[in-house]
Nucleic acid binder design. Structure first.
Lengths: 206, 206
DNA sequence: CCAGAAAAGTTTTCCCTGTAAACATGGAGG
DNA sequence: CCTCCATGTTTACAGGGAAAACTTTTCTGG
């Protein structure tokens, strides 16, 4: 009764309903080739109605991506808060949360980092992406302050860490890190490699 | 005379011409939203002609991706052959070649690793991708044999290395590794982190 | 050397999409 | 109560992908 009150003409919360339908189709197909008309159809609304809420299809996609970043940030923060205390342990937990998110939401994750979710075209999306990235930055910074990580430029460590985590997420999504093919817990193993590099002090030669 | 002989009806080498036109548009726009009809138009041929050479648009995209992998493999092999002798030096050279390729061909690189270039749908594409990956595998294997890299599971090292290189390529393409923002030669710095991790032997606890 | 099949183009056709424009409706404030 | 504005709907149009049917070359075997 309470939320099933359907008004005949005005939907009530079409904005949200469109996003939900689009997220569902994204999850179902693992791609964002769905049509705006189909989104409208599933929401029981005319094919032009979405344009009252999103300037065009790309605007809807950007909003989906933004939501994805918010959720990813939440997942990573949750993983950090519950458990590990060492910088090393926190980094592993955050990385695994990110990789798990990618595996559970492959379509959304790919959209978030695709050119179709153009951060330059949407300040809110850009902001959400930066906030997510900030989780990693803080992590590294804290680890540096307590001496766990080498005192190199923070941005260099961030580039290495982010590249590693994002690359692993991609490989995991593509099913290229299955145990049969690659041994037990390849994610853990790869993160060990990263962490050993992060912890160790510089060598002399190169 | 030799290659300018244009026959009126039959094109001569439409297959190649379509690929060239599509590659040009991919490079120009850095995306593959171009239409098959536009490719046909630029090639001076009717809009249905491409279907004689490619089953559908995705088949053309897969062929572009395949060519991309072949070129990337060539670039990496070339970087290895000319110069560095140490395993460490070779890995850096190969990685930098890959990242440079991504920066010079962002559209193509993204296509190669997008879901639109579905490796499961095209054995030739899959084969080309594996061959490129093989360059990295051989590199790591040789480095392990001469003691440069830790004797962990090869696939774990490969996952870590590939994730790092691919992740860096993505960041570089997105302009997130510019010197102003991230200090001098962040790629080199990030690769150092990886290499330190690759070289070091296991720690005891984790 | 020639018939006819196969290959490679073209035209036609269909249905679908994104998006704009014009119109309709219903709820909220004066 | 009446009018305005946000939110929907209908209508319209310019494309695009892909299939089908038709045409023109080229190739190939007898």
């Amino acid at each position: 009764m309470s939320d099933t009150k359907r008004r005949s003409y005005h939907h009530g919360d079409l904005h949200r309903a469109l996003i939900d339908a689009a997220l569902a189709m994204l999850a179902a197909d693992q791609n964002w080739t769905f049509t705006l008309r189909e989104v409208a159809r599933r929401t029981g609304v005319s094919h032009a109605a979405p344009y009252k809420h999103f300037q065009d299809k790309d605007a809807l996609l950007r909003e989906l991506a933004r939501i994805g970043f918010v959720r990813l940030e939440q997942a990573m923060v949750a993983a950090l808060s519950s458990g590990p205390v060492s910088a090393r342990g926190k980094l592993v937990a955050g990385a695994q949360a990110c990789i798990a998110f990618a595996q559970h939401n492959p379509g959304l994750y790919r959209l978030m980092f695709s050119a179709d979710a153009d951060k330059a075209a949407d300040p809110r999306l850009h902001e959400a992406a930066m906030a997510t990235f900030g989780v990693l930055l803080r992590l590294l910074q804290e680890g540096q302050q307590d001496g766990s990580f080498r005192p190199a430029a923070l941005t260099a460590l961030a580039a290495a860490s982010w590249a590693q985590v994002h690359g692993l997420a991609m490989l995991a999504m593509n099913g290229q890190l299955l145990e049969e093919k690659v041994g037990p817990d390849p994610v853990q193993a790869a993160l060990e490699v990263l962490l050993d590099g992060l912890c160790q002090s510089h060598r002399k030669g190169h």
